[in-house]
Design a protein around this nucleic acid. Structure first.
Length: 803
RNA sequence: GCGGACGUGGUGGAAUGGCAGACACGGUGGUCUUAGGAGCCACUGCUUCGGCGUGCGGGUUCAAAUCCCGCCGUCCGCACCA
């Protein structure tokens, strides 16, 4: 009974028992209320588990375990996002097949996660690199292809000169490859693209119907970047042709004194013959092409540009002839790749006009346009603008758009920052794209019966010098016949990006062994949407957006029962090293969770990671703090020594117990794990203060603490002779009435300054409280007049005095 | 530059209009001990003992860490998106 607390013995034992008893298996009993708790599945890296992983896993383990005690059928699954560059790079370097590397890493991660006692349903484990899994990743791609949402395009892509692979914009960080730090240049390649832009409005609108923390919604909205404005056509002088621009400020059209096109804009090629300084323009284009996106965007960079001499446009409202310039501050990838420049009311145009001596015409009054661009849209009135004069900005926008439409010169237009998703990678370790190219039929989908299209064995995983995938060297795999006409055809050799497998994995958990469909209709109808999804801030834009896009698409296809996959999304903060810096090998501040488990136990690690601070903020590791949590668990263990035979709560602690149950229950829901644990520490301190703990009190404590530290609680539950398994009990309840103290100590203030305290019965009427307060402060009140009396029940009396 | 978050003891952090510093770490003293890097007990924001204290300066309020205005600082995103 009074053995010392020994996590190294009890933790593996309970892990084995839970496993054998299938304690955390989600059932297919669809009559019970369901709860789907989800954490981002890890990439099984060679480094093994990081102390950052247990933070979100423990948090949702707490939620999952609490929900089970509350009677829900809970699904809390785990799997592996196992395609990806580090594995492939390791395979290249060490001449080991990436599948072997993956198996090894998955085995290590599994052992590490199991040692932490998570209540994952391991029967539903998935792996994105299993053919039985990527079968359905490929299937979804085919559906996208059939609906015209997957297409091939010549795209200037970010080319990592080191990995020899095309990167999505978001994989380029500060001009270098996010993974290897190599130099990134622009290169044009034919790429598979997914038309996520088609879903921009749905992805934006869907945010209004889900419970995401606000900053996640904000970053989704910013990434989609919807802006309303107008398209305007400017006639090109003596060509009969026109140049279209997008602007959010059509109201300033009278102030458009020149135009700018991006260096890649086709109008330059089209009218090259007219451009008198073509050589200068060509040189500028070449210089721009050599620059990476990063260099082009570099902060505080001076504006550069060249005038297209010989080519001019007409301002459609003023009729004035205005010059055309080329400059890399205009991006081909947004809007139309051309702008109307209104230097008086746009900072970039103003800077450019000042540098090149272009005219600045004020059309919205309110600033000094010789000193700075006036961009305030709330206060100004239109001037120098013909029929718009005197209007405010909002009205002027409406009026000019109506005028443009009526004259066939433009119309209202919505633009998005969001671009289509570059979906090709010239890499081996990814899902093959199930498409063949036929000389007569073009790109043809593989029949669904031929899925999964297996990743073939290759001799080398190294991408070729031409930038093609290693698969392209496998001629007998590449050569095939066209499913459409039977003629000779070649397989697509690009593979999918790592984002693919993670864009729908939460659906596969519902029915992971189904080889007829990605998941059964019944399972989808019952389990979706995910009730609570937690993940890192680093995935709040792309992974979330991509997976929401696929899910919206699958909803439109009738595959899934709801448009939004995740009902609730939260994010955890990072765990930093003891020095407050990000943990990394090079900084030498890495903490290995295995060491913590070995020295202190899994329950201590779990408790500590939940106690470390507010869940959504980053926190620094502290080994002293870990020790403190171990000490707390030791004190819980030793409560056995003062455990009495009484059932129920003792009179002395009844209120405290009801308060603690309420506090812990509420705090777990609000992810305030640190204060929930603090409340349990206080309760334990109380037990020691009164010198005993009843069975009722101890049983309640064990059930409250179980989600955080399940092994010690399960062990104590059994050791102290409580019936059955703790994981099969019910969540403790409280009575609001019993959380109320009989007497309270209130603060006494005079003019808002604390002047004393007073112990009173909690239900004492206001007048009697005030009388007692005045009596207690009698000495200080002498010679003063009380002009106002404030009483906040249970809190404070404040007497406002004068004299 | 834009957007977001944050700023409280020696440290991590509580408190979201009502007694600032819960809970813990660290520290000091004591106790037990062959021993203490264990356990237990007490104290632990500053103070000239009047008071003063939540980055700084204003404001609203009977009452402000909390709400409002203006600064300063730190961290994280995004970065010429017309």
């Amino acid at each position: 009974m009074n053995r010392a607390y020994d996590p190294q013995t009890i933790e593996p034992r309970w892990q084995k028992i839970w496993d054998e008893e299938k304690a955390f298996t989600a059932t297919d009993d669809y009559s019970k209320p369901k709860y789907y708790a989800l954490v981002e599945f890890p990439y099984p890296s060679g480094q093994g588990l990081h102390v950052g992983h247990p933070r979100p896993y423990t948090a949702l383990d707490i939620v999952a375990r609490k929900r089970r005690l509350e009677g829900y059928n809970v699904l809390y699954p785990m799997g592996w996002d196992a395609f990806g560059l580090p594995t492939e790079n390791y395979a290249i370097k060490n001449h080991i097949h990436p599948r072997i590397v993956t198996q090894r890493n998955v085995a290590r991660f599994t052992a590490q996660l199991k040692a932490l006692g998570y209540s994952f349903d391991w029967d539903r484990e998935i792996n994105t690199t299993d053919p039985g899994y990527y079968h359905w990743t490929q299937w979804i791609f085919l559906q996208l292809f059939k609906k015209g949402l997957a297409y091939k395009a010549e795209m200037p892509i970010n080319w990592c000169t080191n990995c020899k692979v095309g990167l999505a914009n978001e994989e380029v960080v500060n001009g270098v490859c996010e993974r290897c730090g190599g130099e990134v240049v622009r290169k044009v390649k034919s790429q598979w693209m997914l038309k996520i832009t088609e879903y921009a409005d749905k992805l934006l609108e869907g945010l209004d119907h889900v419970d995401y923390i606000e900053r996640v919604k904000t970053s989704q909205r910013n990434w989609i970047g919807r802006s309303t404005g107008a398209e305007v056509d400017f006639a090109l002088e003596n060509t009969g042709d026109s140049l279209r621009v997008f602007t959010t400020r059509p109201d300033t059209l009278f102030g458009a004194t020149y135009m700018v096109v991006s260096p890649e804009h086709p109008v330059i090629e089209k009218y090259a013959g007219r451009i008198r300084n073509l050589e200068e323009v060509r040189a500028y284009q070449e210089a721009a092409a050599r620059k990476s996106d990063f260099e082009r965007a570099e902060l505080a960079k001076e504006k550069t540009g060249v005038c297209l001499e010989g080519l001019r446009a007409i301002n459609p409202v003023t009729g004035a002839s205005i010059p055309l310039w080329v400059s890399d501050y205009v991006l081909m990838s947004y809007g139309t790749g051309a702008i109307m420049a209104v230097p008086a009311h746009d900072e970039r145009d103003w800077e450019f006009a000042k540098k090149f001596g272009l005219p600045i015409v004020e059309v919205v009054a309110g600033g000094n346009v010789e000193e700075a661009a006036f961009t305030d849209t709330a206060s100004g009135k239109l001037v120098n603008s013909g029929f718009l004069n005197g209007l405010d900005v909002a009205d002027a926008k409406k009026t000019i758009i109506a005028w443009l439409s009526a004259n066939g010169l433009g119309k209202e237009k919505v633009n998005f920052k969001l671009r289509d998703w570059v979906f090709s990678r010239q890499r081996y370790w990814g899902e093959p794209i199930p498409i063949v190219k036929c000389e007569t039929c073009g790109y043809v989908a593989l029949p669904e019966s031929e899925l999964p299209l297996l990743l073939p064995e290759v001799d080398s995983y190294m991408p070729t010098d031409t930038g093609e995938s290693p698969l392209s060297a496998m001629t007998d795999w590449v050569s095939t016949t066209c499913p459409c006409c039977g003629g000779p055809a070649a397989r697509e050799t690009d593979t999918m990006p790592q984002w693919a497998g993670s864009s729908w994995y939460f659906l596969r958990y519902l029915d992971p062994h189904n080889d007829k469909e990605l998941a059964s209709r019944e399972a989808l109808a019952y389990w979706m949407p995910v009730d609570w999804y937690n993940g890192g801030m680093e995935h709040t834009t792309l992974h979330l957006l991509y997976s929401r896009f696929w899910h919206h698409f699958l909803y439109d296809e009738g595959v899934v029962p709801c448009p939004e996959p995740y009902q609730k999304r939260t994010s955890h903060g990072m765990i930093l090293g003891e020095n407050g810096e990000k943990m990394s090998k090079s900084r030498g501040n890495v903490i290995n969770p295995d060491d913590i488990v070995r020295e202190f136990g899994a329950d201590t690690l779990r408790t500590y990671e939940m106690f470390i601070g507010a869940f959504d903020l980053s926190a620094s590791w502290s080994t002293e703090g870990v020790r403190g949590c171990r000490k707390f668990l030791e004190r819980v263990w030793k409560l056995q020594e003062i455990l009495t035979e009484e059932e129920g709560y003792s009179a002395a602690l009844e209120t405290k117990m009801h308060q603690t149950v309420r506090k812990v229950s509420q705090d777990f829901e609000a992810m305030k794990f640190n204060t929930a644990i603090a409340a349990m520490m206080t309760a334990v301190n109380e037990f020691y203060r009164v010198g005993k703990v009843t069975r009722g009190e101890f049983g309640t404590l064990l059930r409250l603490l179980d989600p955080v530290a399940p092994h010690i609680c399960e062990e104590l539950w059994q050791a102290c002779g409580f019936e059955g398994r703790l994981y099969r009990q019910t969540w403790p309840t409280y009575e609001e009435e019993k959380t109320k103290e009989k007497t309270v100590e209130i603060a006494l203030q005079m003019n808002g300054k604390i002047r004393g305290t007073l112990e009173i019965p909690a239900d004492l009427p206001r007048e009697e409280v005030l009388t007692a307060a005045k009596k207690a402060l009698a000495a200080r009140l002498e010679g003063l007049t009380v002009v106002k009396e404030i009483y906040v029940p249970g809190r404070i009396v404040n007497l406002v005095v004068r004299g």
